[in-house]
């Protein structure tokens, strides 16, 4: 069981580290969001998985209820991280686009075009 915990933890930490590297490497806010929020989500899932496994294993061997509390709360935490993280990324991206921060090196920006068309249509 120890091996599973270690592997999960290592995967999680690796992806978290990659997320921070992405923050340095990518040029603008949208691409950084890809790395910073989603890679870390994936990393967090695996680190939490390590915690969950650890909790259930210790509960099985020790019988002390505090480990199962740990595991259950970790499950609740990971569920809510999964639900809220993409929403926050979406909210940040939307706010950035509304503050007219355009994506760098973009080949096409259909949202911008559509908004422009809507604005022109509105003024006519």
């Amino acid at each position: 069981m120890g091996a599973i915990i270690w592997i999960a933890a290592i995967i999680g930490v690796t992806f978290n580290a990659l997320g921070s590297v992405a923050l340095l490497r990518f040029p603008d806010v949208y691409t950084r969001l890809h790395g910073a929020t989603k890679a870390t989500t994936f990393g967090s899932i695996f680190t939490t998985l390590a915690v969950i496994v650890y909790g259930f294993v210790r509960w099985y061997y020790d019988g002390n209820p505090k480990y199962v509390i740990l595991a259950v709360h970790a499950i609740v935490a990971v569920v809510f991280v999964l639900i809220t993280n993409p929403v926050s990324a979406h909210a940040i991206a939307r706010a950035a686009h509304r503050s007219e921060i355009m994506p760098v090196r973009a080949v096409v920006d259909e949202l911008f075009n559509d908004n422009l068309a809507k604005k022109r249509g509105g003024t006519k």
Binding site: F80, I83, T84, V87, H90, A91, R94
Partner: peptide
């Protein structure tokens, strides 16, 4: 109000907070 996605998620996990 923010976009539909944010609103739906806020409604569906608001009670949990």
């Amino acid at each position: 109000p923010m976009s539909k996605i944010v609103r739906t998620v806020a409604a569906s996990i608001g009670w949990f907070v």
